[in-house]
């Protein structure tokens, strides 16, 4: 459920970028990793400074962070303040990375753009692995837990509830933003950039903004994941987990439909969980290493969706901003039906 919440945040951000605006950001992991790295590098050092804990943050990481967590038991308020500040900082870092990403996006098209963005995405892992002051290189670092004051057995459920609440806020934000004149304009830019330009839209500025906002959201997702996992290690921020899977999830769910994002994410996360959970019992039944099973199965799902329902489970539909007041009014039952099934 917590993983679901993190992916909802990342996928909503990708949907804004790709589903609504048509920017195929194959370097999504860049912003996610950037956010996670902020969470790994910043709050621990702040806490350690405040608590007066000695030791090199990277070399003595485990000792320092356990000291910090012990200190946080009595400093809950500061813990939360720094937690939210970190999310803000991650968002700012994400926006910065988005600005960098926008350079190729407004200059390149098609295959060239895809390859460039893919390379951008790879860079975050390489930097994390090789520049150890940031996130401890190949050894990784621990991330302090602002919920340290809670007894061990309730900490996890509370963290999950918190994550789901934050994801819900991001959902409401995305939904409201996309059901506005802005959402309409983004779909217009996606459908025909030149025509939008001829009708007065500065499409370069619009695309840059979208990339920055969506990178900020993705970075928040990455930071949340880092706090939830309690640690960051660079190699976990790979293109499969944070670029391809998000694409898969929004393709399954339906592009340019935020409800579809929820459905696609839920299906995907549940399936993976089932596969991982039953790996051992499946081992005798498959003629190859079960580790490959989840990749295979996910590939098959993508194929099935693309072949039989290329528009995804939930199709994109017109999203009127406010009713224009003409035409047949829909009955309440019809509206409920539409809400649930369209």
């Amino acid at each position: 459920m917590a993983i679901f919440a993190v992916y909802v945040v990342v996928n909503l951000s990708l949907n804004m970028e790709f589903g609504y605006t048509g920017i195929p950001n194959f370097g999504k992991v860049l912003a996610v990793g950037g956010g996670a790295f902020v969470a790994a590098a910043v709050p621990g050092r702040i806490f350690a400074g405040m608590a007066g804990i000695e030791g090199d943050y990277i070399r003595d990481n485990i000792a320092v962070v356990s000291g910090v967590n012990a200190w946080l038991v009595d400093n809950t308020g500061i813990g939360f303040a720094v937690f939210f500040m970190t999310l803000g900082l991650a968002a700012a870092a994400g926006a910065g990375l988005g600005l960098i990403t926008s350079y190729p996006v407004i200059r390149l098209r098609g295959d060239y753009l895809a390859i460039t963005l893919l390379a951008f995405g790879e860079s975050i892992r390489v930097v994390g692995n090789n520049f150890s002051p940031l996130v401890g290189g190949t050894l990784g670092v621990q991330v302090p837990d602002p919920l340290s004051f809670l007894p061990g057995e309730v900490r996890f459920p509370v963290a999950t509830i918190g994550l789901v609440a934050i994801a819900a806020c991001v959902y409401v934000y995305s939904e409201r933003t996309m059901r506005s004149p802005l959402g309409r304009m983004l779909r217009a830019v996606r459908d025909d950039e030149v025509a939008a330009g001829a009708l007065g839209k500065d499409t370069i500025r619009i695309r840059t903004r979208v990339i920055m906002v969506s990178a900020a959201l993705a970075a928040i997702g990455g930071a949340l994941y880092a706090f939830y996992a309690g640690g960051v290690i660079a190699f976990a921020y790979d293109r499969a987990s944070w670029t391809f899977w998000p694409f898969l999830m929004i393709l399954i769910g339906g592009l340019a439909n935020n409800k579809g994002v929820l459905v696609g994410t839920l299906i995907f996360v549940t399936l993976r969980k089932v596969i991982i959970f039953h790996k051992d019992s499946l081992a005798p039944a498959v003629p190859f290493d079960v580790a490959w099973l989840d990749f295979l199965l996910l590939g098959v799902i993508l194929l099935v969706v693309l072949l039989y329902r290329p528009q995804g489970i939930m199709v994109e539909k017109p999203t009127p901003t406010i009713p224009h007041g003409r035409g047949p009014l829909r009955s309440g039952a019809r509206r409920a039906f539409d809400l649930l099934f369209r």
Binding site: R184, D191, D192, L199, P318
Partner: peptide, 17 residues
Amino acid sequence: KPFRSLTVIENLLIPAS
């Protein structure tokens, strides 16, 4: 060059900034 997935009224609303 219509905005293909937009309705007619949505197309008409695009130029209105």
